[in-house]
Amino acid sequence: MLKVKLRDVEFKNPIITAAGTFGKGYELADSFDLSKLGGIIPKTITLKKRAGNPFPRLVETPCGLINSIGLENDGIESFVKNTYPVLKRLPVKIIASISGETIEEYVELLKILVLETDIEVFEINLSCPNVEKGGEEFSQDVEVLTDLLLKIRDVTERLLWAKLPPDVYGIIDRVRAVVSSGFDAVVLSNTYRATYVDVDKMSYSLAKEHGGLSGPAILPVSLYIVKEVKKAFPDFPVVASGGVFSVEDVVRYILVGAHLVEIGTMNFVKPEKVFTLPDELATYLHRKKKSLGEIRGYLIS
């Protein structure tokens, strides 16, 4: 009843944990039932190991959290050798998020993952606000973005999602690039560039001055972006992400057309909650006497 199909890949339900908010993917495997979820996205993988940014990397803001983690991860070699064998045994669909500093790095990462793993879905992270090279910068120029997306699409037939930075003004052109490159979905959106200041210390709250804002504070803006994109591309699947803290928030994104919904910052605060969202969504649908397909995009058409 909650199943979602994107091309030939079936998701048990629309609830997925967002990259960077669920560790390597297995940390909570002994504490909660991962099979409840539609999928999990382990922390973004890069070609080389990254130590991440200096501390402090986090600052809490009203109803939000700014992070400048900087894609800390052990690199692709360790992912394939150490992390993936553990993830493979988990009773949940794995979606791999990757980020490169160059187009060639993205292509190489994806080639390795296609060759060494059975992962069916890849989220191309084009939106990390916390790295010096790559990440967000590829989304700035639509031509560069299109070139990158086409080269990535050439690597594999498996499902590809492009995760874009949030933008309330120029998002349509970027999503058009994603659609025309033959990608299977767009993920909207990553965190918002943000900063905060500690008035006692008279300094920036983060060692890197700024980072990406997440949490309930961003939900209305990310919801607006999903709505605008779905109005422009009603048939193109959107994976929504940003500030979900309840089943009502999940429904909000589905009503404006999202196929899948990623849950991020909430996992830090209430790690148990994401596992109850699918049942809560089923209860909502039952109460409304509607199917998931009937409420998806209800406000768009």
Binding site: G20, T21, F22, G23, E27, L28, K43, A51, G52, F55, P56, R57, L58, L65, N67, I69, E72, N267, F268, V269, P271
Partner: peptide, 27 residues
């Protein structure tokens, strides 16, 4: 300061003495 407290956010850390990188304070 911790984001989660159980090793999934990468928000806390302490420098390693003998090598590059950080340990996670929480996990």
């Amino acid at each position: 300061m911790m984001g989660c407290g159980f090793g999934i956010c990468a928000g806390c850390g302490v420098k390693k003495r003998k090598e590059e990188g950080y340990f996670r304070v929480c996990s």
